[in-house]
Design a binder for these strands. Structure first.
Lengths: 118, 118
DNA sequence: GCAATAACGGTCAAAAAGGATAGTATAAAT
DNA sequence: ATTTATACTATCCTTTTTGACCGTTATTGC
């Protein structure tokens, strides 16, 4: 009688109740949009990303990069076979479809700061 | 010598390293964008929101509503003084500036679903 | 010969987020 | 008189996320 009739949306093996939460599943969390924001217009090495985001720890950064890679929004390209490695991160074509989303998010934050500076 | 010179952005007492993370601080988490998504075009009572989001628990829903209210993006209007209460939630003017962001987020999720249905 | 560098991964721990369940006050409906 | 409904809050607990810190491999620079 009281079935929970919520037709879930599925993406990459995860289920979401709504299209907005699906997106948040991909770009949510404390750091993913920041990473995507820095990668919108350029390719960056791991160490360059760290310089752009000095407050994130290495472990968290690499975890988030791995997540984003698994969801197919960024790609990882290795240039050397032996240490010290050279690795570059960039958006995939699929990841590029997120650019308007990331821009909207960054713009809003930017405007809030502009209008709150008294 | 090795100062962490990251000029943080501040909003509502919280600090963020970048404009994108500020926005995520406001709309991030599993449920906030879903709530905002349902409130974009209409005012809803607590019980109506629950019907739109059957998979969220009551506790979480009211916590998220409170968070959103504290950040000034939604407003809570009480119509009765004694139980059973009538309470309506809607976007504030400030919250309405988030509509393009929420729409971009929802649209992306929607498109992903469209193009993944095989 | 030693330190620095690159891009991590592993372990442990803390913090944040979310879920399960039950309880509250009161009025209207049955 | 009992049930139903509303909009929550209170506990308690589990899961997820994030952080701190150290180790690894080989190469280059001093």
């Amino acid at each position: 009688m009281k079935e929970k009739e919520t037709k879930m949306l599925t993406f990459k093996g995860k289920e979401y109740p709504c299209c907005a939460s699906l997106t948040m599943g991909v770009i949510g969390g404390k750091w993913k949009t920041v990473i995507l924001f820095h990668l919108t217009d350029k390719t960056l090495r791991y160490s360059e990303l760290r310089k752009e985001m000095p407050t994130v720890t290495e472990r968290t950064l690499s975890l988030q990069l791995k997540n984003l890679e698994e969801d197919g929004v960024i790609k990882r390209k290795v240039y050397t076979s032996k240490p010290p490695l050279k690795v570059e991160y960039s958006l995939t074509n699929f990841g590029k479809t997120l650019i308007p989303v990331v821009r909207a998010i960054a713009d809003w934050g930017h405007e809030v700061i502009e209008n709150n500076e008294v």
